[in-house]
Structures are given as C-alpha cells and as structure tokens.
C-alpha cells in the first residue's frame, strides 16, 4: 500500500468514525445518565436530514441558518420523545425492556411516517463547502474534511458543557449516583430531558454533516443506530469519552476492511469485531472511564 493510499484510508476512517462518534456519544450520554437505550435514536438523524433539506433546499435558506434551526428543532424532538414515551415508563416494573420495545415501536412509526409524508425519494443536499485540499498527493474535498473538523468541535463543545457547566455537573452527578443526586435536590426529570436533547443534537449534527454526501431517506437512521450501539458497547456502556474513541476506532477498522474486502462486507467486519470484543472484554475496550 502506498503512503497516500494509507493516508486516504486513515482519513476516510476518521471521517466515518467521527459520525459514529457523534451518534454513539449521544447514546452513551443518555445511557450513562438514565440507563435508557433509545432505539429511536437513529430516527433523530433521519428527521434532522429531512428538516435541513426542507430549510436549505425547499425554503432556500442559508445553510448555517438551516442547520441551527434544524438542531434546535431536533433537540426539542429528542426532549419530547423522552418526556412523552420514556419518562412515563420509568416508574413501572420491567421498565428497561418496555423502553426498548416502545422505542423500537416509535422508530418504526417514525420511519413509516416519513415514508408516507416524504415518499421514498432519496434526496441530497448540495455541498456546503467547495474546494479540494491536497495532502501529499491525496486530494480530499473540503466538504468531507469538514465533517471531521466540525464533529470534533461539537464533541469538544459537548465535553465542555459536561465538565465545565452547572448543567454538566448535575448530569455527571446523576450518572454517577442517581439516588444521591436526587437526595441533594437535583431534579432527575430535568437531567434526563437535557441529555436526550443533547444526544438528539449530536445525532442531528451527524445527519446535517452527512446530508450532502449521503441520501436522506426514511431508513437512513437504521444503520447508524446499529453502529452507534456498537460504539457504545465497545467504548464501555455509558462512557462518553469511550464512545468517542470507539467511534473513531470503528471507522478506522471499516476503512481498513474495505482495502482488503469488497465494500459489502464492511458491516460484517464491524459487527463481527463487536461480538469478538464482547467475547473477550465484556466491559468494552476502555472500561472504567465513565462520565
């Protein structure tokens, strides 16, 4: 393999890895704080994809404005999902499985709802950024590189919120000991709704970054949900930093796999890697580092 091919593989891996990290870190944040697995998380990507298309293409808004409005709306939708479908189940027996079942139902509901509303058309956004960067014989569209840069910036921002703000402090407290957090007066409902909103924004950002290079369609969330889950387990269930690291690792593994195997085996490699890791290290690759 030549150096430039290798470099291309690494950059491609980091780019798809950054999307996995965005999706996975959101799921990890929600799980770490609330012990809830949200199977409708992928549909937040899908909804964000359609929203940004609507604002940027149909209404012809400036991309930045369209993105900001989309993220705000998706955050609100994430919070609403938590309030309406998840919070009422938490007090009941066997809630963990009920939440899984209810969110799987919600996921299908949203997918077929999108299909009915928008049809099966597969649509794409125009590129946000023009131009190509040359890196030692390798030519990368700025659009693709921007995914990595923006995703990193967003996750950094999220870490800043977690570790440097009052909201972050009560989120971490709830993640570390929910009952003790309640005892000092931290309102669990507020924390749960906030982390859902944050995780929805991270997923929505992933969708916006992808929308110029992937088609927006009702099922676009499905594969990202599975990858996001894989990342969360690899990173050590509920660990924000672990999920980010595992996201990039999974992206790199996939990028490496397509250099030796046909592309259609990429996901087989990814999920086999997940099961192999679970077999030898049930607590994930980066166990012990939680929020």
């Amino acid at each position: 393999m030549t150096a430039s091919l290798f470099l291309e593989m690494v950059i491609n891996g980091l780019i798809s890895g950054s999307i996995y990290a965005l999706v996975g870190s959101g799921i990890a944040l929600v799980y770490g704080t609330t012990r809830v697995l949200n199977f409708a998380h992928g549909e937040l990507l899908m909804i964000a994809g359609y929203l940004v298309l609507f604002f940027a293409v149909t209404l012809g808004w400036n991309v930045i404005l369209a993105s900001v409005v989309t993220l705000a709306l998706v955050g609100g939708i994430g919070a609403a999902i938590q309030r309406v479908t998840i919070a009422p189940l938490l007090a009941r027996e066997d809630w963990a499985f009920r939440v899984i079942a209810a969110t799987i139902g919600l996921s299908i509901l949203l997918q077929s709802g999108a299909q009915i509303v928008w049809g099966e058309q597969f649509r794409t956004l125009p590129y946000f950024f023009d131009g190509v960067v040359s890196l030692g014989g390798l030519r990368m569209p700025v659009q693709r590189l921007s995914i990595l840069v923006i995703a990193l910036a967003l996750m950094g921002l999220c870490a800043l919120v977690l570790y440097r703000t009052g909201l972050g402090r009560i989120v971490r407290a709830t993640a570390q000991d929910a009952e003790a957090a309640l005892a000092v007066g931290i309102p669990a409902g507020l924390v749960h709704t906030s982390v859902f909103a944050i995780s929805a924004v991270l997923a929505g950002a992933g969708a916006i970054l992808l929308s110029p290079i992937l088609t927006v369609n009702p099922w676009m969330g499905v594969s990202f949900l599975l990858k996001g889950f894989a990342v969360v387990i690899l990173g050590g269930l509920g660990s924000f930093g672990g999920a980010v690291a595992a996201g990039f690792l999974l992206g790199l593994i996939e990028a490496a796999s397509v250099t030796v195997l046909p592309t259609e085996w990429r996901d087989v490699v990814a999920f086999t890697f997940l099961i192999a890791v679970i077999w030898v290290r049930p607590n994930g690759l980066f166990a012990g580092r939680e929020a």
């Binding site: 479908t85 079942a101 209810a102 799987i104 139902g105 919600l106 996921s107 299908i108 509901l109 949203l110 997918q111 077929s112 709802g113 009915i116």
Partner: peptide
C-alpha cells in the same frame, strides 16, 4: 405505522 403504534 400500525405495527409501531400497536407496540407502543
């Protein structure tokens, strides 16, 4: 759509 709603 109906399956999803039924499950929920």
């Amino acid at each position: 759509l109906l399956y999803g709603a039924l499950v929920i």
